[in-house]
């Protein structure tokens, strides 16, 4: 249940972000990370962004994204 997924904010309408979640466009509430802006990487849990991530850390820390990067390089 504590699963949280890294995603990139594509657009922001007040506190509701549209994030790219591995290709899917999903709405996430940014009330818990009010400083989040378009282009930021965030962790999304239960419909809320719970932290802003450094892009380099995202690629280093989440195997799924590393694997997607590697697939894109092929």
């Amino acid at each position: 249940m504590c699963l949280a997924i890294p995603a990139k904010i594509e657009s922001l309408d007040q506190h509701i972000a549209t994030v790219d979640l591995a290709g899917a466009k999903v709405r996430a509430d940014t009330t818990l990370t009010p400083e989040a802006k378009v282009g930021d990487w965030v962790l999304v849990h239960a419909g809320y962004t719970i932290t802003i991530l450094d892009e380099k850390d995202v690629r280093e820390t989440f195997a799924v994204l590393r694997e997607m990067d590697e697939l894109q390089k092929r």
């Binding site: 249940m1 504590c2 949280a4 509430d29 009330t31 818990l32 849990h45 239960a46 419909g47 809320y48 719970i50």
Partner: peptide, 13 residues
């Protein structure tokens, strides 16, 4: 409303 500290803020909101 179940879950730990991760999920409680969503319930609170």
């Amino acid at each position: 409303a179940i879950g730990f500290e991760t999920t409680a803020p969503a319930t609170a909101l």
